[in-house]
Write a protein that binds this DNA or RNA. Structure first.
Lengths: 345, 345
DNA sequence: CCCGCATCTGACAACGTTGTCCAGGGCCTA
DNA sequence: TAGGCCCTGGACAACGTTGTCAGATGCGGG
């Protein structure tokens, strides 16, 4: 008895191939290929027969084989921190739209802010031979990407610069935005201003902290340690940080929140405090205009970041740009009330 | 003179292949394959030599070729409406996590609520030979998927059922949720309750409308045409619809909003109205607890939807389940104030 | 009527990987 | 020392597609 199966591995449930279509249509393999790809040199009659066979068999070209042959996958990868974060949704969508306009699919993955996972994801995408990568870096050493870039994988970093390699990067002006936001508070009479932000190893967090410091310095105000809380974004610790700043004999009269998650929690805390405390947040938050007071924010345009990065990526793929560039997009201060509150004391 | 290039198409910038690695390490091609895949039967010394060659050349296995040979891509597709919608971010992330746990990558695309684009995307994903598909359908006819499913592409629909084919589907209890939400308003004394929702051709919208009708009927209240606005989600038209309901001699005293986008706009409108109008929205909205009054919502768990669907998908891929099933997840009424306001008159 | 040309078609190799199968060599045992 | 077995390594085909190139077919003009 023959134990060997006709097909050793069941594969795609025995999908029809061009060969099958060719057999059914009574034409050559290459003719089917021509029809499928809309290449010229096929008589209408032959084309019709092939089309019928395709319909009848439910044939669908195997892009894996196509990729293997052609070398281009028409897909790009996007590695970001967390798709569930409202900041990244629009960014991802913007990248997708640009990709779509260039006929490419988007594969994306979340690094969960873990450098190891970022690398793992990026390399997995490279193994799929994506044509290009848009990366929002979690780590700060991207030398592992050098062979990939050398091999022709277009790469653009977004939101934070690459570490230890020279690559295109598109970011928001975190420094300027934070400085303006803090200056806004100062202009409204505040001096004791708290800062709650992420770990300074994250570029944007460091830049925003730098902006905070610069604005305070411009105003000639010495910053007290108790006003700063770094490396804190989870709700529990942000809450504690905010409450600490607001307690004691000499509390802050205003808070600058380093990103959208921090802002949201600070809003919660402030809603429970009986005296008015001013607030400016980095990143816009949904419904920020409907709160009372409305939340004044330094807004960055996530979609524009994504769009710019993706366009830059495809320009690389078209072989246009070669010199890595750093593109910085301006932020926008949106005043809604919370940042215009005067000091409470 | 020879005009033909050494390599006709430049391809991946001449990436090293296993052959190159083998040559450099002085071993056979298959031995490299064994090392790369961690297969047994390679002496430590040989393995070391191969590893060194891999490092030196920056070799990365070409997964396209691997896929072609093995038949499984270890990737799944997710087609949703709009990644920028806060409802889909967590859903997508949940699917990704499950995929990751099964060693698969996630390719996702936005249909923009366009049936044609949905089909285009799905077929593109099938051409990539994704192992499975999670689809949030935009269209209502999915017979085009029949050959794919027959060919072994695992498929799960989420949020809305498939049209004209029998397939797994995971959804929220839109009918029950909407009925409960409206009943909640009725329990607080409302009778003239407006409904603003999406086009009834969308399953969830139809179900929510049905829930609204059922609750009203249970209360013995005849619905007036002026109370209902269907097929309306963009801010401008929602605003107009809400304003219309609130104007006139006999305005509604409460509004049931059919999804998160509608809710947000209705909140905006209500914040401009001088009398209190009750509101219950379908879908939770961020910061809904911080508004005054807090927004009472019928919440669905987007992440749980995604997780359930993805797990079901991988169960299909493991060949466990065969009979298409319909899984309905309960919704949860979250009372925060806006739904408990009494009628204004 | 035949030749030449243009148009259409198909055979074949190659893409980079993995599965199958066989060869060679070392080691243990009789 | 010879025989057999196990362990390691490599040659080869195949996956489904596309590029190359040459053959077939048909048509018009000389």
């Amino acid at each position: 008895m023959d134990r060997t199966a006709r097909r050793p591995d069941s594969r795609y449930g025995n999908r029809p191939t061009m060969k099958d279509v060719a057999a059914r249509a009574g034409v050559g393999l290459k003719t089917v290929s021509r029809v499928v790809n809309g290449e010229p040199g096929v008589t209408p009659d032959t084309e019709r027969r092939v089309q019928e066979a395709i319909e009848a068999l439910g044939f669908r070209r195997n892009d894996s084989a196509r990729v293997l042959r052609k070398g281009r996958t028409a897909s790009i990868g996007l590695v970001l921190e967390d798709l569930a974060d409202p900041f990244y949704g629009p960014l991802s969508r913007a990248v997708e739209e640009v990709a779509r306009a260039h006929g490419a699919l988007l594969i994306n993955g979340s690094s969960a802010e873990d450098p190891e996972r970022e690398q793992e994801l990026v390399l997995a995408l490279c193994a799929r031979r994506v044509d290009g990568l848009v990366v929002i870096p979690a780590g700060d050493d991207h030398r592992y990407l050098e062979p990939e870039i050398a091999a022709g994988v277009a790469t653009v970093f977004v939101d934070r610069p690459a570490g230890k390699i020279d690559a295109d990067v598109v970011l928001s002006d975190s420094f300027g935005g934070a400085r303006d936001g803090v200056a806004h508070l100062i202009a409204h009479g505040h001096r004791r201003i708290g800062f709650i932000g992420d770990q300074p190893r994250i570029h944007t967090a460091a830049e925003r902290l730098r902006g905070y410091r610069a604005a305070m310095e411009d105003a000639g105000t010495a910053i007290e340690d108790a006003w700063m809380s770094l490396g804190v974004t989870d709700p529990v610790r942000v809450r504690k940080a905010a409450e600490d700043m607001l307690a004691g004999p000499d509390p802050v009269t205003a808070i600058f929140a380093g990103n959208n998650r921090v802002t949201v929690t600070v809003v919660r805390v402030l809603s429970e405090v009986d005296r008015p405390v001013a607030l400016v947040g980095f990143d816009d938050i949904e419904l920020g205009d409907l709160l009372r007071p409305g939340v004044t924010v330094v807004a960055q345009d996530a979609a524009q970041l994504g769009r710019t990065a993706a366009e830059r990526l495809f320009r690389q793929l078209d072989g246009v740009s070669v010199v890595p560039e750093r593109i910085e997009l301006p932020t926008r201060l949106i005043t809604r009330g919370s940042g215009e509150l005067p000091p409470a004391d």
